[in-house]
Amino acid sequence: MSTVRTDNTQHLTPGALPSSMQLNAEGKLKHFLTIEGLPPLLLEEILDRAEQFLNLPNKAQNKAPILRGKTVMNLFFENSTRTRTTFELAAQRLSADVITLDIRNSATSKGESLLDTIRNLAAMHCDMFVVRHQHSGAAHFIARYCPPHISVLNAGDGYHAHPTQAMLDMLTIRQHKSCFQPLKVAIVGDILHSRVARSQIHALTTLCTGEVRVIAPRTLIPAGIEKMGVNVFHKMEQGLEDVDVIIMLRLQKERMQSGLLPSEREYFSLYGLTEARLKLAQSDAIVMHPGPVNRGVEIDSRVADGSQSVILEQVTNGIAIRMAVMAMVMSGQTGEQR
């Protein structure tokens, strides 16, 4: 179990589809790489499990012994504060030993390939990798080539997926709206460069959400996005009409330099979430944002801090979701080994 495979020809045989790769023979999670292809009941199970962790008394003091004796390695090839911290906290609250490596500045900058880095870390006998990487598909890549007893959790890969973020958003929505079927959900902003949006879309459609909308200028909408089951809007006012949930995405400054947008000011004037625009949505609509928030760029401060904002609840839910996923993959892993 502890031997590290070095079969370099493995990639020459057809691999499993990412969606099936993350489930063991009994259909339980053993990796968490993407929402795509996961059955709705499994998503519900993650949410239920997270609810249980949320309802534990004295969360911070009482550690659940679920991951006692296990080692979790946080591998961050790209910077992150929120995701990294919540993963660390989640692992600690499950009694795991946690090591966080900021790999940006170490191995890869010395020319070591991703595969070598992973094999070296795997040789240190850990049980779980939490991976954030700037390239799409990196988590799948690692899951495919690391030893089978290690579970891989995707903490964001390129523009591809950020499944735990999507699940914490689903938890937040469920807490406020209870049921997904009648909901209209709008995702606003840079869909093109957003792994969060892609994972949210998969999660929302898997949970049978009534309508999922994406709202952005044409330059920030990737080709063929409607095939993921969303309706595309270019006008904020039309897109927000009667929605129950508004998810705002962060706008990166690079988008102005690469010619996708003229200026932050023009973006805010067209797509910024203001109190006036919020009124177009249902009166009990909730406002979400995966953070970090650019006040005055994608969202007005009064909305971000307003009564309909659930942005901080999302952060709290993030820890519970990550605890749930870690607990589930570890039991999926043990189930497999039996």
Binding site: E36, S136, G137, D157, G158, Y159, H160, A161, R195, R198, P222, A223, G224, I225, K227, M228
Partner: peptide, 15 residues
Amino acid sequence: HEGAVATRLGLAPIS
């Protein structure tokens, strides 16, 4: 290739 597959996988498109 720019299209639904690249979009789903989050890969930078070639139009």
